[in-house]
Write a protein that binds this DNA or RNA. Structure first.
Lengths: 332, 332
DNA sequence: TTGTAGGCGTTATCAC
DNA sequence: GTGATAACGCCTACAA
């Protein structure tokens, strides 16, 4: 593998001069610079990041910890973070933890040995102790989607509680009284928060869910099962804590012969692309996913370079997107 | 940052001994080992990968080049590769290239400076020259989903041509004669191959697409537009070169008042999770996505350690999954 | 304007 | 069994 020495030899000069043109620091004659650049081009030489880091430079590596990237919400989030970070000069390890603390711990150990400059995490557990070694070394951590009480330097987390309230209120405003809630994964902090918001709004109207079904995995098939169970209680409105849950519910309702929104109103959360492309089109609360990703990337960057944070980290608001799955309940 | 020296000092011994317990090589007395391990635990010390690599070790880094991970097909693929690779001891850079050769080149340069041990790529361009520097250094490249003529060490690519034929044949077997094709992104090699397969099968039955609409971006909204255009030619069957295309077509047909499959049959390709959760449920050709990802990871690993490849890299076959969007054409 | 040398954290080679 | 030490590739004083 070509090293700086190889280039120096090729250009008949010293490593110091090569280094100078590489970083254009110090003086180099135009002539020498030309020779060196020729050698570099010819060899396709790339300085070793390892050596640079070892020498005392920044690693420009960042770790991204997400439950998964095979569900679209996190796929979009991951891509927007990776791209923003790359443009800022960082390279990312995108890690899928499957909501498992054990997995997270393994990845954290890897981050440590790779000397990452920062971490963005949507962790399974709020305030998990395995983040302590990162903190101890002063490595900044940005929490995304979910808090990381006490361990995060900062956070990009939408108001899930409010989101939950919005979902419930939308159905209540339409006049629904028999409302069911389904969602997964149950141990996800954001899901729990949304659920709390839903229940709070319901309670304010003197209501309680006629059925509440939480599952472990975040997929259509399970959502279908949860919804089937919930529908046994004959709600007129159903809240999916994610779009995946809501879409599963559309199918369950369909298979039960229910017409949407005539017999059953359904609302979801996230506004993933599929939400607009199911039939009927799903009413949902939109999260500005890409925006969140970019914000997290920029926030981490500021943390890494030690720039003071702009306090007013105004995240774009959640917005209700009314499509075709919600309407007033039909007098039975 | 704690280094091996810190540990040595803490354990009152030399760096050499610490290194020995770290890699348990050579002799270390139980007593010394205990002291060293205590120091390591206490410090939460992790040896620097950079230094190890510099010293001459393997980097255990691999680069994964994909058009994107915000579409589910690639998200699933990326996650399965990353996980398999991590279990094999590698860390991955998952890079979204947006089908752009320029992006790819930037990432390749990064791979070079990071000294990755191998690369898995679904490249925008077959045989793109920017892979040459990797080849030159003997860095193995596994092509996935799409060939990389001349640049890949090996490839995990399904038979897209066959897949195309299967789609067309399914509709032909049902008796369809007026068949349209839509898909994107048009410059993707796999899309082109599937299209070729479709046209070949059609030609064998003396047919030609009544409309062929290819778009640039891989999303529902554009698919909707492509389908709307294609439907102007009144096909009885429509082939979506991806599930995304097919799902967009379902919506376009729906908005035009067409009943599926009564007025129009639709078939897709990939079998992403959404395919089973649209209404009506999409008939499609299933790719074993996760299996492909794992295979690519294992193949790259074998390449990296220099183990001879098992020639019979039997990939699981493509399978037709008939659901509710295809049926014989209705005599108009 | 250019070159020499030291040191970053590791591991392997050699003495002791 | 254990401890110095060289070397990996790079950058930066410092010397020339």
């Amino acid at each position: 593998m070509a090293s700086i020495k190889t280039i120096a030899k090729l250009a008949q000069t010293s490593v110091a001069s090569v280094s100078r043109v590489l970083n254009n620091s110090g003086y180099v004659s135009a002539e020498l610079r030309a020779k060196v650049e020729a050698a570099i081009a010819q060899t396709n030489y790339q300085p070793s990041s390892d050596a640079r880091v070892l020498r005392g430079g920044k690693s420009n590596l960042v770790g991204i910890l997400l439950p998964s990237i095979d569900v679209q919400f996190f796929g979009i989030l991951a891509q927007s973070m990776e791209q923003a970070l790359f443009d800022l000069g960082y390279q990312s390890f995108i890690c899928s933890t499957a909501e498992s603390a054990a997995h997270e711990a393994r990845y954290v150990a890897m981050f440590l040995s790779r000397r990452v400059g920062g971490v963005i995490a949507a962790s399974a557990e709020a305030g998990a102790a395995h983040f302590a070694p990162l903190r101890a070394r002063g490595i900044p951590i940005v929490a995304i989607d979910r808090d990381l009480h006490g361990y995060a330097s900062d956070a990009i987390v939408i108001d899930h509680d409010l989101g939950g309230r919005m979902m419930a209120q939308h159905l209540i405003d339409f006049g629904h009284r028999k409302i069911a809630v389904i969602g997964a994964p149950l141990h996800s902090q954001s899901i729990q928060r949304r659920l709390a918001g839903v229940r709070a709004a319901l309670a304010q109207s003197g209501l309680e869910p006629v059925s509440q079904q939480l599952g472990k995995t975040h997929d259509f098939a399970q959502s279908y099962d949860l919804a089937s169970r919930a529908l046994a209680n004959r709600p007129t409105g159903l809240i999916g804590l994610t779009d995946i849950a809501a879409i599963g519910a559309i199918h369950a309702a369909h298979d039960l012969g229910l017409r949407i929104p005539h017999d059953l109103s359904i609302i979801g959360f996230d506004n993933i692309p599929s939400a607009a492309f199911v039939l009927p089109r799903l009413t949902t609360i939109a999260q500005p996913i890409r925006h969140l990703g970019r914000s997290a990337a920029e926030m981490l960057h500021r943390l890494i370079i030690g720039e003071p944070q702009t306090l007013a980290q105004a995240l774009p608001a959640l917005t209700l997107i009314q499509r075709d799955t919600t309407a007033p309940p039909c007098a039975a």
